[in-house]
């Protein structure tokens, strides 16, 4: 799915300096060029923290499991975000975690006599993380960074580092327009694509794929978001053909084929409206339900086209 120069490229040209500044700042903090992986990890981290704190408002019996999972999510996210500083962060995180477990377990033990397991494991973790901090750091580093695998690919292959990937990218000649475009942004996206691809190669135990045009996933994601917003405002019945029309515009489909696709999609949404879920015709946020084709075509004096003339006019303006 290769596109020629589009408005998206113009936008990416404009935001490139901003992204570069953010990436430079992030590089200083993370010890590596920020990528979408870091965004993903930050998302996990924020969600974990929010859900950990949010769970404290639940009844005690309902707290344990979400807090346990949220805690695990936070710990692993932090370890992966700080993977370039694990010799320092590892023991520190271990000590903090151990201290926290010891505090929680100790408090529970004093109050109710429970929590001995937490108390002992917390103290052990705290002591190990402090006393054997170098070994502990190395062990955490190995846990986070080194591939552990007994099935699938070949671990003997050295893992390509970010530096390697960057070098490869810089050394590659810019042979044509497409390749220039694909470098869109020293931005993290194209760099990370290269890195991820190089990491993916040679594995049997995971899902392997390559991305040729980074704009494809971005536009698809954006169009899906537009589809969702339209769904929430005018309902899926009409949002569906609009989404498909936008898609056909993006891929520059032949007019006849595009019309056929739009009609087909409208038929599908109409079938859902008729047989599965009537609510697909209503916008959830607005509560607005545009007239359905049955309303528009009806000859009944109550539901004929005329009462919807104003709405139709609005539609015409909107589409125009």
């Amino acid at each position: 799915m290769d596109q020629e120069h589009t408005a998206l490229d113009a936008v990416s040209q404009r935001i490139r300096p901003v992204l570069a500044t953010i990436a430079d700042g992030g590089e200083k903090v993370l010890g590596e060029r920020p990528t979408m992986e870091h965004v993903l990890l930050v998302l996990f981290l924020i969600t974990g923290v929010y859900m950990y704190l949010g769970a404290s408002e639940f009844a005690p019996a309902a707290q344990r499991f979400p807090q346990l999972m949220a805690g695990a999510t936070v710990v692993f996210s932090v370890l992966l975000l700080a993977r370039n500083y694990l010799t320092v962060v590892g023991p520190l995180a271990g000590a903090l975690l151990g201290g926290y477990f010891a505090y929680v377990g100790g408090s529970a033990f004093v109050d109710t006599g429970d929590g001995l397991f937490y108390l002992i494991s917390g103290v052990v973790l705290f002591v190990v993380a402090i006393v054997f901090r170098e070994r502990f750091g190395a062990a955490v580093e190995s846990f986070v960074a080194e591939p552990v695998q007994v099935m699938g690919g070949d671990d003997s292959q050295p893992k390509q580092t970010d530096e390697d990937a960057d070098t490869t990218l810089e050394e590659e000649p810019e042979s044509d327009a497409d390749s220039t475009e694909e470098r869109t942004a020293d931005t993290s996206e194209s760099k990370t694509d290269e890195e991820a691809e190089s990491e993916d190669e040679g594995s049997a135990a995971m899902y392997v794929y390559e991305i040729d045009d980074p704009r494809g996933p971005i536009v698809t994601g954006a169009l899906c978001t537009v589809y969702m917003l339209l769904t929430f405002s005018i309902g899926m019945l009409y949002a569906t053909p609009i989404f498909v029309a936008l898609w056909t515009l993006w891929v520059r489909m032949d007019v006849l084929k595009a019309v056929a696709m739009v009609v087909l999609s409208f038929m599908i949404s109409q079938a859902f409206y008729d047989f599965v879920e009537r609510d697909v015709a209503r916008g959830w946020l607005t509560g607005w339900q545009p007239p359905t084709p049955a309303d528009l075509l009806s000859v009944s004096p109550h539901t004929n086209l005329f009462p919807h003339a104003i709405e139709l006019l609005q539609w015409g303006v909107l589409l125009g």
């Binding site: 992966l80 846990f143 552990v148 007994v150 690919g153 594995s203 135990a205």
Partner: peptide, 8 residues
């Protein structure tokens, strides 16, 4: 065990 890459 079965996934490639870091256990974390």
């Amino acid at each position: 065990v079965v996934t490639k890459g870091s256990a974390a």
